[in-house]
Amino acid sequence: MHAEPAPSRPPEAGRPKITARAVDVFYGSKQALADINLDINENEVTALIGPSGCGKSTFLRCLNRMNETIPSCRVTGRIELDGIDVTSSLDVVELRARVGMVFQKPNPFPKSIYDNVAFGPRILGLTDDRHQMDQVVIGSLKRAGLYDEVKDRMGQPGTGLSGGQQQRLCIARAIAVNPEVILMDEPCSALDPIATARIEELIEELRCDYTIVIVTHSMQQAARVSQRTAFFHLGEIVETGDTAAIFTNPANPLTQGYITGRFG
């Protein structure tokens, strides 16, 4: 018997961080995703686009097993994080620490700004004392571009912030546990253009350290923030490719129809 040598590659953009193979998802007897195959590359932003109800959120939820919270939902196929099966070989708490999520509607906990960010590290026991926790909270708020706006009111409720600030608080909360992947489901749909631009700038910065998957209904946003784009249609992936290529010269007529606003 001899062990396979571990594939030790240096972290580099373009290496698949998450791979989905033959993924099917059912809600009860209704199939929501069929035979999804997708590589999500490390240190890249992957945009998932497609008409409402095509299964983007469903797919996103597969990546950190959020679908397990929906009783009727059944997922088959294989999803790997760094080559490890997320369903059979990873503890769900560990998985969600490594794969964080930001939702469409900012959903801060009804707690102080500080406690919102400290929540994850506390549960996971990531810090030893108050001083370390301060470092993590401040560092995360800074990375999310929110610190300067809230540093004088860390004890006030997170729900008292504006929508854009709340969304950045949720991003700070997601990165506080030092995840590897951040999933974002329409993170800017409730934000004005300025708040949206700040989140997009943040996404671009975060890409250096994280792998990001973003669902968006804005073609311009997908084009602005992502390196790769996957187009979903009726529960299937129709086309995946380099974002610039998808938006200038899509290969599939369905993609073309969708992104140009000609859907029949």
Binding site: M219, Q220, A223, F247, T248, N249, P250, T255, Q256, I259, T260, G261
Partner: peptide, 9 residues
Amino acid sequence: RSPMADDLR
């Protein structure tokens, strides 16, 4: 209009 794909071209 923010044209895309063949419209952009």
